[in-house]
Design a protein around this nucleic acid. Structure first.
Length: 273
DNA sequence: CTTTAAACCTGCTGGC
DNA sequence: TGCCAGCAGGTTTAAA
């Protein structure tokens, strides 16, 4: 569940299951964290909140769990003493009387003093979270025009968590298509109308993904996921190479940008105009 | 300054 | 069917 919308949906599920609950048992598959299996139980889980693609689980004894799923981490909610049938490796288990939350496969797991969590090197560098409800298009537009960002190619900028936290590779492609912009363009190449349109897409597309059900963790799981969850975020260019553009019928192209696949409509997203 | 490439973490996919 | 290289929705680091 890699990008901002999927992480935030996971946070919602986890918080609904265990926020406010006293911790009965903790398990960590990392030697450096073993001591917390004794230290954390007895405290209460205060909150589970996303920061871009990272997740912070705060306990009322002054500790905060930092997790980042990278490409492959996945959270499960299970009943007490229950473990899902999966071949993945269990990395974190937090058990309460009501439910357990289980993190599989992730390698990025740390415990921080809550009063120092803001000094975490990853969190410290994050820009505003693109899914934060208070973030406005005018703020994003101003950010696009700022000296720090106006000279960067959009393809790279839209993956930079220091620009907007929570963006990711599928969102980048969908935002650029929505705004009708080529990834090689820079904010300083855009006129006011284009800047505004891009700023609005940068908020609207992630919010739409979050409001629908985001996307399935893997392609294989997609069919099952859709059957279970109902409507999902619909890609217009991502992973649609060769399919006709819904606006103009031109086949969607696949290029590489930042060593990552990027899908676009060559006609709707021209490099020059 | 910005961009690029490689490395790391782990699991899935596609091809043989 | 089984195996394995390469790829993936991420991020950091070093080098260009």
């Amino acid at each position: 569940m890699p990008e901002g919308p999927e992480i935030r949906r996971a946070a919602d599920r986890l918080a609904a299951a265990v926020a406010g609950q006293p911790l009965l048992r903790a398990q960590f598959a990392f030697p450096a964290l073993k001591r917390f299996e004794r230290l954390l139980p007895g405290s209460r889980i205060l909150s589970i909140t996303p920061r871009g693609k990272a997740l912070l689980t705060a306990f009322d004894n002054g500790w905060t769990l930092y997790t980042h799923n990278q490409l492959y981490g996945v959270w499960h909610v299970a009943g007490p003493d229950e473990r899902p049938a999966t071949s993945r490796s269990l990395r974190v288990a937090l058990e309460t009387r009501r439910a357990s939350i289980l993190l599989y496969s992730a390698s990025n797991v740390e415990l921080w003093r809550s009063d120092a969590i803001e000094t975490h090197p990853f969190l410290q560098r994050l820009g505003p979270d693109v899914l934060e409800a208070t973030l406005e298009a005018a703020t994003v537009a101003a950010r696009l025009r700022s000296p720090a960002f106006r000279g960067r190619a959009l393809g790279a900028l839209l993956l930079d968590q220091g620009f907007l936290a929570g963006m990711g590779n599928y969102l980048r492609a969908e935002v650029l298509f929505d705004a009708g912009l080529h990834p090689g363009l820079r904010p300083r190449d855009l006129d006011d109308a284009q800047t505004t349109r891009l700023a609005e897409a940068l908020l609207a597309i992630p919010r739409r993904s979050y409001a629908t059900r985001g996307i399935a963790p893997t392609r294989r799981m997609r069919a099952d996921y859709l059957a279970r969850e109902g409507e999902a975020f619909r890609f217009r260019v991502f992973q649609r190479e060769g399919a006709p553009c819904e606006r103009c019928g031109t086949p969607i192209a696949r290029i590489a940008s930042q060593s990552r696949p990027l899908f676009l409509c060559p006609r709707c997203q021209p490099a020059r105009w």
